[in-house]
């Protein structure tokens, strides 16, 4: 019933109006330290949202709440009409059992700063693991699709390498292919280029740009202002656990109104 929002049966107007991701009043603290202080954010289908802000401003925590790697203290994340991590009932939100949570997470891909590839598995095994185990895709089919994805990220023929035999930029592109293999509705990027040597950043950003052009919905935490300016539909600036400024890159990046945003951007640019 909630899924109707995203099916063809829904009225066209509603489908266009309802964002894929709706975050409302999200709060989270770690041991008394308030990390997220009431976040509201919408991400529409096919849009790229870039989260900017100084370290410790809550960008990564926000991202990790979207696929329930962190459990929020208050507020909610809605994905395609479903509350992430909870089942609403009798005026309460009941945390989901592992099985349902797994099903939800399978719709959201995530790319980490440290890649987090499985080092004991080959590139091909890294990519096919989840489709085979979670979606029940036949192994051969998954492998064929994995090869297509590797080609797409510019790593054709590397399927039998182990992650540690590859450069950071290559590993991150494998991680993107791994996330794409689950055919997610949303991709989360947590500082995907921060652990990379400068000359390897370009390859990863190019892959992400291609993804954005192909219509993938993405939330990206990054310090690459150039990427934000060029690719993002929305830029949200976080400070102290709040979104202090958001809008088109042209507005936020060129003419930030909030003094904190202005100070940060002048330091980064």
């Amino acid at each position: 019933m909630t899924g109707a929002v995203t099916t063809g049966a829904a009225p066209a107007g509603e489908k266009r109006d309802r964002p894929l991701v709706r975050i409302r009043g999200l709060r989270k603290s770690f041991g008394g330290h308030l990390v997220l202080d009431g976040i509201d954010l919408d991400v529409r289908e096919g849009e790229v949202t870039v989260l900017l802000g100084p370290s410790g401003s809550g960008k990564s925590t926000l991202l990790r709440c979207v696929n329930h790697l962190e459990r929020p203290d208050a507020g909610f994340v809605e994905l395609g009409g479903e509350i992430v991590g909870y089942r609403p009932g009798r005026g309460r939100l009941h945390e989901l059992r592992a099985r349902s949570l797994t099903r939800q997470r399978a719709q959201v891909g995530m790319v980490f700063q440290q890649f987090n590839l499985f080092p004991h598995l080959t590139v091909l095994e890294n990519i096919t693991e989840a489709p085979v185990a979670v979606r029940g895709v036949p192994r051969k089919e998954a492998a064929a699709r994995a090869r297509t994805l590797l080609e797409r990220v510019g790593l054709a023929g590397r399927e039998n390498s182990y992650p540690r035999q590859m450069s950071g930029g290559q590993q991150q592109r494998v991680a993107i292919a791994r996330a794409l293999a689950m055919e997610p509705r949303l991709l989360l990027f947590d500082e995907p280029t921060s652990a990379l040597d400068p000359e390897l950043v370009g390859d990863v950003l190019a892959v992400m740009r291609d993804l954005a052009v192909s219509g993938m919905t993405m939330i990206v935490v990054t310090h690459e202002i150039g990427f934000a300016r060029e690719v993002a539909d929305t830029v949200a600036f976080l400070d102290g656990g709040r979104i202090i400024e958001s809008g088109t890159p042209a507005d936020v990046l060129a003419d930030p109104r909030h003094p904190r945003a202005r100070a940060f951007l002048s330091a980064v640019l």
């Binding site: 592992a98 797994t102 997470r105 719709q107 980490f112 989840a130 989360l188």
Partner: peptide
Amino acid sequence: VDPGQAEAAQALGLGNGRIFRRI
């Protein structure tokens, strides 16, 4: 084992048993 490994597996939607045995 680096906790990021389990997180990455969770993010892929793998079940807990599978994460433990396979990853």
